[in-house]
Design a binder for these strands. Structure first.
Lengths: 242, 242
DNA sequence: CGACACCTTGAAGAGGTTCAAGAAATGTGG
DNA sequence: CCACATTTCTTGAACCTCTTCAAGGTGTCG
């Protein structure tokens, strides 16, 4: 959060960023893109385990992930905790902070990471002038809601195997659109994180992986996962129960 | 959705609406309020069971509930369904539609209801001029996200009894801020709806109510609920497990 | 009054949790 | 670079919660 000499205001080149399509609204003029670059007040590097922000911290900015992998988790006053999502390059993080002017969840880097810091007031101001940006911000927020509804569906109606299958399919799909393999991935989170996210105990996560291996659907070497039969994974989600 | 002669463009008096504080951004000048009233392009009356909007329907407006009670539910392609929330007077509904320009869930009136229809393009345009409105829209979206995280926590980490307790506390608390009793409520939804929302089968909902009755915590007469021991309800949420 | 939707209750069973122990990987300090 | 501590993951067995299946009760509305 500090702006030390080694984290100066840099001129970021959104225009040449490979995440441009994920991150910026479509159809902006180059002059508009130039103004948007001003919003990115700085970049921040994080080491594995670092907090990008914490519950209760004052909300000033939202962040676009340039590289690395994050988890967000939400804690209730009485000590319950729930991992609410995993974020990767191009994802935007920190939107929960808008309501109360402080963050209400924790964002933790699961590997060394780099983010663009976008000052929220600045975004607000600029989106009053660039309607494409305004719409983009709304869509990002709305997408988050949609996404959460998907997780609620998973938590509310799926069995362990379908949850894990959905999780793996979702991750590979997102990685695939970022140029990675559609059938192989390295999990950056612990089984505990997965368990929290999917609403199951760590032992159940482990056993469910074991079941998928047994059925010849995936290959697991630690956190390295290879999907051998994607169709079977999809069928697991659909068939199981009703 | 149709603009028949009996549902004309009316001049709505937001300025004198009793929901004003819930619905409008705080600290607007009276001229700004006047302009906001233009956003409310019409009002719509719904009978119990009517859809306010449906999955797949083109997104044009968001709605503020003036009276009545709604549920929103989200269905996956394979036929799973999840009730994602219950909405009452002052709540805003339809925000899920922004991302894809069409609605991705169903909103159904659980009793006769009345809503203000707010044209979304109009809101966008006006919030470019009134920064208080812009911020308000963002906050409403962000609050929705926060809310969903709370439900994820519930679904991911609570037992049946804690889920139901949380549900009842949440409902009464919201009703209380709207001037209703903090200890009595009439459920507008079926046990099935509750079950879907809380991720449990209808039989479990029924049995869990039975348990709460047995413990002397609530009194249940059909859909009429009276909370006899609110502290005990709260303790159920906290104590149960860890 | 009869039909239908909604709700409750019982008994049996499945799926997931808990507790416990050990294996495998990772990190740390000498 | 190895030994040791720690974290992370796996597996087994007993248990418990919730689900499933089945039947019957209650309320509502034409």
């Amino acid at each position: 959060m500090d702006m030390r000499a080694d984290a100066p205001k840099i001129n970021v080149a959104c225009s040449s960023c490979h995440l441009r399509d994920v991150c910026l609204p479509p159809g902006l003029s180059s002059s508009e893109v130039a103004r948007l670059e001003d919003v990115v007040s700085s970049q921040r590097r994080l080491m594995r385990g670092d907090h990008l922000f914490q519950n209760g911290e004052r909300f000033k900015a939202i962040y676009t992930i340039r590289s690395g992998f994050f988890k967000t988790s939400f804690a209730s006053p009485d000590g319950r905790e729930q991992v609410t999502g995993f974020q990767m390059a191009g994802d935007i993080i920190g939107l929960d902070g808008i309501v109360h002017d402080y963050h209400s969840c924790d964002a933790i880097a699961l590997e060394d990471a780099e983010v663009c810091v976008m000052n929220y007031d600045h975004i607000e101001a600029l989106s009053r002038e660039i309607s494409g940006l305004q719409r983009h911000v709304h869509k990002v927020l709305s997408r988050e809601i949609l996404n959460d509804h998907g997780v609620m569906l998973l938590l509310g109606s799926m069995r362990a195997e379908a949850r894990l299958a959905t999780f793996l399919l979702n991750l590979t799909q997102r990685l695939h659109t970022r140029g990675f393999s559609p059938t192989e991935l390295v999990l950056r989170m612990t089984r505990d994180d997965i368990g929290s996210y999917l609403g199951m105990k760590i032992e159940t996560v482990s056993r469910t992986f074991a079941k998928l291996i047994e059925e010849g659907i995936v290959e697991v070497k630690q956190r390295h996962i290879r999907i051998l039969n994607k169709e079977a994974l999809k069928q697991l989600v659909v068939l199981e129960k009703q």
